[in-house]
Simulated assay, not measured.
Amino acid sequence: MMKARLFLFSLPMLMSASAAQAAEGSTDPLATDPDLAIWTFVVFLAMLAILSQVAWKPIMEALKAREDNITGAIAAAQRQHDEAKALLAEHQAKIAGAADQVREMLAEAHRDAETTIAKAKADAKAEFDAERERATRDIEQAKDAAVRALAERTAGLAIDLAGRVVKQEITPARQSEIVREALGRFGGNGPSAN
């Protein structure tokens, strides 16, 4: 290695000496000096050998390492891209499932609301019908009581009037008996359906 360095340092001096000799003797720019051509070829081969060991091998190794690094980075990026796509698809499926669940829950709530409304209407109608029936019974009872009271009073007035007309005295016991008989006949005819 040391010899190669000494040769490289002495080579320019040799080349400049032979170039000086060529310049003194020849004026033709296309003229070739065989010694200079040989030394140039030897220097080229020496530089080629030295650079292949010292520079090209590390440069090629560095380029190979960089290429491997870039290839690995591309592969890692592709894996991450594929993972991201899978995660995106999974999240989109979850979102679609959640949207379906929300629609299903809304439909169920709507059905529940309709059922509750229908039940409330049915309960209100049943309560209204029961209240109307109770009110009708109360009215019938009040009407029957009013008719009885009216019949008793009318019968009492009729007996008093008849007693005056006939001039006979009717005792309260006899009056009650007559009223019962009148009510019996009056009840037999039945109250008015109005």
Results as ranks from 00 to 15, higher is better:
residue 51 L to Y: 05
residue 133 E to P: 02
residue 105 M to L: 10
residue 90 E to V: 02
residue 59 I to M: 07
residue 161 L to F: 15
residue 81 H to P: 01
residue 129 D to R: 02
residue 70 I to V: 11
residue 146 A to G: 06
residue 120 A to K: 06
residue 115 T to K: 07
residue 139 I to R: 15
residue 37 A to D: 08
residue 94 K to F: 03
residue 142 A to S: 08
residue 144 D to L: 14
residue 157 L to C: 12
residue 156 G to P: 04
residue 101 Q to N: 11
residue 57 K to W: 00
residue 89 A to P: 01
residue 62 A to S: 08
residue 157 L to I: 14
residue 112 D to T: 11
residue 117 I to S: 08
residue 55 A to C: 06
residue 32 T to F: 01
residue 54 V to W: 11
residue 67 E to K: 12
residue 59 I to E: 03
residue 88 L to K: 14
residue 97 G to E: 13
residue 107 A to N: 05
residue 57 K to S: 07
residue 144 D to S: 13
residue 150 L to H: 15
residue 69 N to A: 13
residue 112 D to G: 09
residue 154 T to F: 14
residue 84 A to P: 01
residue 132 R to P: 00
residue 92 Q to F: 10
residue 78 Q to I: 12
residue 46 A to M: 12
residue 132 R to C: 05
residue 88 L to V: 10
residue 41 F to C: 07
residue 75 A to D: 06
residue 59 I to Q: 02
residue 97 G to A: 14
residue 49 A to E: 07
residue 145 A to E: 14
residue 86 A to E: 00
residue 65 A to V: 01
residue 142 A to W: 03
residue 96 A to P: 00
residue 75 A to P: 02
residue 66 R to L: 03
residue 76 A to M: 09
residue 132 R to Y: 02
residue 103 R to Q: 14
residue 99 A to M: 13
residue 157 L to F: 11
residue 44 F to N: 07
residue 64 K to T: 01
residue 109 A to M: 12
residue 84 A to T: 14
residue 122 A to E: 15
residue 73 A to S: 11
residue 98 A to R: 13
residue 131 E to P: 00
residue 158 A to Y: 11
residue 128 F to C: 03
residue 144 D to R: 15
residue 46 A to G: 10
residue 113 A to F: 06
residue 116 T to W: 03
residue 140 E to W: 11
residue 159 I to R: 03
residue 60 M to E: 11
residue 34 P to N: 02
residue 107 A to E: 06
residue 129 D to S: 04
residue 132 R to T: 08
residue 125 K to P: 01
residue 102 V to K: 09
residue 97 G to T: 06
residue 106 L to W: 04
residue 147 V to N: 07
residue 95 I to E: 01
residue 99 A to Q: 14
residue 157 L to V: 14
residue 93 A to E: 09
residue 101 Q to E: 13
residue 104 E to M: 13
residue 103 R to P: 00
residue 66 R to Y: 01
residue 159 I to V: 11
residue 148 R to Y: 12
residue 128 F to P: 00
residue 132 R to L: 04
residue 119 K to F: 06
residue 143 K to N: 12
residue 129 D to Y: 02
residue 52 S to H: 05
residue 64 K to V: 01
residue 98 A to F: 09
residue 44 F to A: 09
residue 148 R to P: 00
residue 54 V to G: 09
residue 133 E to R: 14
residue 99 A to N: 15
residue 154 T to A: 15
residue 142 A to E: 12
residue 148 R to F: 14
residue 139 I to E: 12
residue 37 A to L: 10
residue 126 A to Q: 12
residue 146 A to V: 10
residue 121 K to L: 12
residue 138 D to L: 13
residue 100 D to E: 15
residue 42 V to A: 05
residue 82 D to G: 05
residue 158 A to E: 04
residue 103 R to G: 11
residue 46 A to H: 06
residue 141 Q to V: 13
residue 53 Q to D: 09
residue 154 T to W: 13
residue 154 T to H: 14
residue 118 A to H: 07
residue 117 I to Y: 09
residue 126 A to N: 09
residue 78 Q to N: 12
residue 65 A to C: 02
residue 59 I to P: 02
residue 37 A to C: 08
